[in-house]
Write a protein that binds this DNA or RNA. Structure first.
Lengths: 151, 151
DNA sequence: AATCAATAGTTGTATATACAACTATTTCGG
DNA sequence: CCGAAATAGTTGTATATACAACTATTGATT
């Protein structure tokens, strides 16, 4: 792997450092996503499903309502109802209509779900080692700049 | 907009600065992509179609073979054959089987395609202004760190 | 020259995403 | 209390993506 220009065999220079940064973020994101997808495939889940399980673990043992899952999802346009239904069919989450507000549906990660996350996280540690091409300080700087970019 | 923790209403701290960076890149990429998608919708194209038009403009007036389009695409898994066919139906590209190697299909952006890109680029300048929340130096630093991360 | 392997694209199909329209429930103003 | 508005999810459907299997053409080997 090399610079973003090498990766996408860019013939002409980018219009600006900003334009290049946009392409670089999109490209790097796709690269990370595909890596994640491959790692998670053997566990039968997609990266978005993994992300939802992590959201649920963050709230555990409290349940999380569907709407909160939606607004915490990395990709806002995926459909939480259907995604959660897939997790439910795999027994990774429980689904319960809230009694005090029956419009609301509460989702809670199961023991199986937690155990699956633990497995994946253990394996992920190896994968995260690869990312240590950058230093911790660089990672912090990256986070700072990305947060500022979106402001 | 705020820090990535605020954006995705993260309750627990990230395991590491690296883990946070991965989520931050995926989240920021989705944000950029959705912004692009909205801007391009009025021109009837998707961000990936826009990207392919830019690849073709980079080679213009030379054509680009399908395989080269594929390996320059930001999202490697989208299907260049079908994507190009959609652009062809909109008369934004020309498609021609290469005579010297008839397995190969050469794609070239049309005058209409170039003109559409010019329109979008003009509008994009306004949008890029928003990104100037970060300085040029920060954009350079961002590019440097992302390139290093993928190495 | 005949066969096998490699290259370049295409197509089938299952799944996922985008977007809008829909149902059900609760809240609020009069 | 009634009807309108707001909230929370669900569903329909067109399009897009992922992955593998497929065709066609060319190159390499003997």
């Amino acid at each position: 792997m090399g610079t973003i220009e090498e990766e996408i065999k860019q013939q002409k220079k980018f219009g600006s450092e900003y334009e290049k940064a946009v392409v670089n973020i999109l490209y790097t994101s796709s690269w990370l996503y595909n890596n994640n997808a491959v790692r998670m495939k053997k566990y039968g889940i997609t990266p978005e499903q993994y992300n939802v399980l992590r959201i649920l673990r963050g709230a555990y043992p409290k349940p999380t309502m569907l709407g909160d899952i939606t607004c915490r999802m990395l990709d806002k346009s995926s459909n939480a109802t259907r995604l959660v239904e897939k997790l439910r069919l795999k027994a990774l989450v429980d689904r319960q209509v809230c009694e005090s507000n029956r419009r609301q549906v509460d989702i809670k990660i199961t023991a199986e779900g937690l155990s699956l996350l633990t497995q994946i996280d253990n394996e992920s540690d190896e994968w995260y080692e690869n990312l240590k091409a950058i230093t911790k300080t660089e990672a912090q700087e990256l986070n700072r700049i990305l947060d500022k970019l979106r402001s």
